[in-house]
Amino acid sequence: MNIFRLTGDLSHLAAIIILLLKIWKSRSCAGISGKSQILFAIVFTTRYLDLLSTFISLYNSCMKVIYIGCAYATVYMIYMKFRATYDGNHDSFRVEFLVVPVGGLAVLINHDFSFMEILWTFSIYLESVAILPQLFMISKTGEAETITTHYLFCLGLYRALYIFNWVWRFYFEGFFDLIAIVAGVVQTILYCDFFYLYVTKVLKGKKLSLPA
C-alpha cells in the first residue's frame, strides 16, 4: 500500500458515492449511461470473485464488497427505481462492440489460461473501456450536469493515481504487470479530453457543454 494506491481507491470510492447521491437526491438518473454502469457491475463481479477463494486483507475485502454493492445499487436505481428518468434514447452505444472483443482479448492475452485468471483479465480490459458509453452519451447530448462531471473527474483521477502507484511499485517492489499497465494507460487516455474540459470549464464555474 502506498499513498497513490490509497488516494486512488478513495477517489474511486468518492466517484461511486457521488453518482449514487446524485441519483438519490435528484430522484433522477438523467444524463447517466445505464450501459456504462452495467459494464462496471460486470467488471467488479468478474474481478472480485476471489472474495470467495482468497483473503488478502480486511481493507481489501471491505472495499470489494462496497464497490460491488454500490455498482448493483446504481444499476438498480437506473433500470428499476428511477427508470422513468433514464434517458435510454441517448444511451445508444453498442456495448457488444466492447464486450465481445474484450472477451476475445482476455482469452488470447493473459497471465495464465485458467478460469479465474481469464475473468480477472477480462475485467481489467473491460474496465479500461467501460466509461465509453457515458462519454458517448455526453458527446451526443452535448452537455453534462456539473455533478456528473465531478463523478467523471474522480473516476479519471483514480485511474491516473493507479498509474503512479504502479510506477511506485516498480521502483520499490521491482514488480510490474504489463496487462494492467497497458489497460490502465488506455483508460486514462480516454479521460484526457474530458480532463481538459473539466479544468477549462467546470472549475471556472461554467457548465460543461460541447460546441455544436
Binding site: 481507491d9 464497490y67 480477472w120 514488480f175
Partner: peptide, 10 residues
C-alpha cells in the same frame, strides 16, 4: 500457473 501479482489491488 503464473497469476498476476496485482490481486492485492482493487
Amino acid at each position: 500457473g503464473i497469476d498476476s501479482q496485482l490481486k492485492d489491488e482493487l
